[in-house]
Simulated scan of single mutants.
Amino acid sequence: MSFQFDFTGKVALITGSSSGIGAGIAQLFAKSGANVVVTGRNADGVAKVAKQCTDVSPKQLTALEVVGDITKQEDCDRLIETTVQTFGKLDILVNNAGLAITANITDDDYMEKYMHVIAVDLNSLVYMTHKCVPYLAKTRGNIINISSIAAKIQVSI
């Protein structure tokens, strides 16, 4: 079964879109006609996915590339500001950035690893949502939060 969507004229910002599921989401939005913002920490990954988005865009729209660390509020602010300055609006926020770190509760650096996972998987989602809501309210936009099955996996000690 094939689905076709028309996001012509919409602006979609996808966190963690320089690889994996986020890259796929960015490409699907681009293929559906949206202006896409590709972001991540890896500049090469961001550039590669942005080119892929441009290549599949029906009108060859150039994807906006923003390199940054989603755990840093100043990078999040720059990401949002650059998006709105470039496109004049924001219609879709996809909170996709996430990671999992395997650690044993007895590891010396356990709390450091835990805090990093919380910063990426939770704090960035809350901050990005908080900062994007004023723009999304103007366009009656949408927020998509991506999660993981990992929350349902039982951990034994």
Rank of each mutant, 00 (worst) to 15 (best):
L125D: 01
D69W: 13
R78Y: 12
G16D: 00
G98P: 03
S147F: 09
L125P: 00
T39C: 15
M128V: 01
A43K: 11
T62C: 10
N42C: 09
I118M: 12
A137Q: 11
G98C: 02
I14K: 13
T39S: 14
A103V: 00
Q60F: 10
L61E: 12
G45M: 15
V120G: 04
V67S: 10
S156N: 10
S18A: 14
L13A: 05
D6W: 05
V46C: 14
M115G: 02
Y135V: 01
T83K: 12
D107R: 02
V38P: 07
G22I: 04
F29V: 06
N95W: 00
G40M: 08
D44S: 14
A137D: 09
M111G: 06
D6S: 12
I149H: 02
Q60H: 14
K48T: 12
A150P: 00
N142M: 12
I25T: 14
Q52P: 03
V155W: 00
G16A: 02
T8Y: 04
A43P: 15
Q154N: 03
L28Q: 14
G141D: 05
R78N: 15
A150C: 00
S32P: 07
F87K: 14
K59T: 11
C76E: 10
M128C: 08
S148Y: 01
N96Q: 08
T54N: 04
A47V: 07
K89F: 11
E112C: 01
N95H: 01
G88T: 14
M128R: 00
I146T: 11
G9L: 05
G45R: 15
S2D: 01
